[in-house]
Design a protein around this nucleic acid. Structure first.
Lengths: 338, 338
DNA sequence: TCGCCACATGAAAGCGCTTCCTACGCCGCA
DNA sequence: TGCGGCGTAGGAAGCGCTTTCATGTGGCGA
């Protein structure tokens, strides 16, 4: 590390706007104006101020700014959990757009936290608005944030609260139809719709698609991870009346189910169909490749940031509800397509 | 949405500590003490204050707190990019530990940003310390943050700056040895070591492992994504002197390379060996499953948060450099292991 | 019964910034 | 020559909180 000029400043080592003003021989108001361009400053003065800023290595304290300007220039995003590719992509889109709009991003993962509601309230005191994913916090908590702009993502609409969702229904119907077209009849749905409104919607659509062909699927609760998928699928495959299709609530369950099916000596895509949801990277690389539904996750995050910004800047005052299209991605795990 | 009691407060709709104090019939100092437990408060008084807080829905303004207390209770984390499973896991571990330590997390993705250095400086004004991943920011910028605790992750040590890394060298040597043991001789390294010190370390270790058997691998630059892996691998496989092993800098390149190999009619694990690095979910599910190296990503993030906290709280004042072990995960893509 | 001390509480001073309001030159016009 | 106006800059108030310092009250020992 190269030797550094120790920045001057008060005894605490922090440089304040007063130090800059003193060095430049101007008032603090002028420093503020020169740095933010909030009012005209003579060129020569500005140059002197900026030189002083540079010399002292002045970094404005965000707390001071935010207190005076009554804004945080920051957005929050609340996740249930950050594991899995789904949320990371949403976050990426969110961060990208938020920062383009001049806002920092604070993340909060509620998973495994003793008091998620308190954490959300604390977050609320640090941001100008926040995005909440799924059922991470109770409706009451969101309501208690009254006044703070909130956008919910992947959660059913909640009164006047803005929302951004993906349209699972259409693709789910298409998936149901597609499976029926393969001649599959004993269809098992794996997942816990009560845990997630999105999953409930998927299952509903699939039931509709299958129902058009007179097929009534069964439903088995399953946590949304791979190990659970393997376990639940193994149980189903051992039972009497083995299903000929396992329709899973997400890709992780489906990938786990593939493991179970192979363990049971079944050829996925021949002896049994398995489908997922999300189109994670592993879905493409699994053999057979997984039939699934692609969601525009990055766009979801990005759009949420935009919708939130409109509220924060009060560009819009009426609720906005967005629905993003999804794509059914047919691969080989649901049966061969010659 | 249920009807809500509109919180009282000033004309801006925000409730301040003054409103609470007025309602409870105490001074603002007492409200502060009652809420933070920073000094004894009579039980009856505390109860009255807390009731007022509840009634008004008071949420302390973080800016006020942080200005007065001279602390942000927040940490930053700077990523090159958030895509891919690698960073999401690190972030998860970081967020978990940081929040256990009572700190919020601000994320910054430098990828595709016009002025990353300015963004990092801005971040520096909002946090008590930050973690920087890889080569996202120039050494000078880190240095210019003098005074602000910084921990670098997956980046070579930088003077007195704390660091947390994974030990790629040991596993890389083991991988080299393993490949040599398979009888492979024409080995191609795919990746751009100059882009990432971690990758440079991997390649060095692999060269050492192979060198022990008198093998000198070739090296081909490649971006760290799947499409690049496919493209570069395809070119190599078409050339004269086709390599019999493609050792890739990460799993995504390797998964792309598998696609190329299969496209060229080669059986991966028989006609050609392919290995990755990271052990992403898709590595496990690819067929053949990918030989790779597992990195403790979650632990990496968590440890970084701890190391940073020690600096922020000044529990420790001497540099700390941590090295986490990695595991070679041998699967079938590097050759069959009967 | 008196005085002292510990405890509980309030007043007020900042923390570092933005911004309103005022003041000062200086120019141009009458 | 005198006055209004504009461009520029400074003083000072205040954002919402923590914390120090001073004050008041009750209980205790003498």
């Amino acid at each position: 590390m190269k030797a550094l000029p120790t920045p001057q400043g008060n005894e605490l080592g922090t440089v304040t706007i007063y130090d800059v003003a003193a060095l430049a021989g101007v008032g603090i108001a002028t420093v503020s104006r020169a740095m933010n361009g909030s009012a005209p400053v003579a060129d020569a003065t500005r140059a002197r101020v900026l030189a002083a800023v540079e010399e002292l290595g002045f970094r404005p304290s965000h707390a001071g700014t935010s207190l005076a300007a009554r804004t945080h220039a920051a957005n929050g995003i609340v996740f249930p959990d950050l594991s899995g590719p789904y949320y990371a992509e949403v976050l990426l889109g969110y961060e990208e757009t938020a920062s383009r709009l001049g806002r920092s991003v604070l993340v909060l993962a509620t998973h495994g936290r003793p008091d998620p509601d308190a954490a959300v309230r604390d977050l609320a005191g640090r941001v100008d608005g926040m995005v909440v994913l799924g059922r991470t916090v109770a409706d009451e908590v969101i309501a208690s944030l009254a006044g703070l702009p909130v956008v919910v993502v992947a959660r059913p609409e909640l009164g006047d609260v803005d929302s951004v969702r993906t349209d699972g229904l259409t693709s789910a119907r298409a998936l149901g139809e597609h499976l029926a077209g393969h001649g599959l009849r004993h269809i098992a749905l794996l997942g816990s719709p009560e845990e997630s409104p999105d999953v409930a919607e998927r299952f509903l659509g699939i039931r509709e698609g299958l129902g058009a062909h007179g097929i009534e699927p069964t439903e088995t609760p399953c946590l949304f991870d791979e190990a659970s998928g393997t376990r639940v699928a193994a149980t189903l495959l051992e039972g009497r009346r083995r299903p000929d299709a396992l329709v899973c609530a997400n890709d992780e369950i489906a990938l786990g189910a593939i493991v179970a099916a192979e363990g049971a000596g079944l050829r996925v895509g021949h002896d049994i169909a398995i489908t997922g949801w999300d189109d994670v990277m592993a879905a493409r690389h699994a053999r057979p490749a997984l039939t699934t539904v692609r969601q525009p996750m990055r766009a979801l995050g990005s759009l949420a940031a935009e919708v939130l910004d409109e509220r924060i800047t009060a560009t819009r005052t009426t609720p906005r509800h967005e629905l993003l299209a999804t794509d059914l991605v047919v691969r080989d795990s649901c049966g061969l397509h010659p």
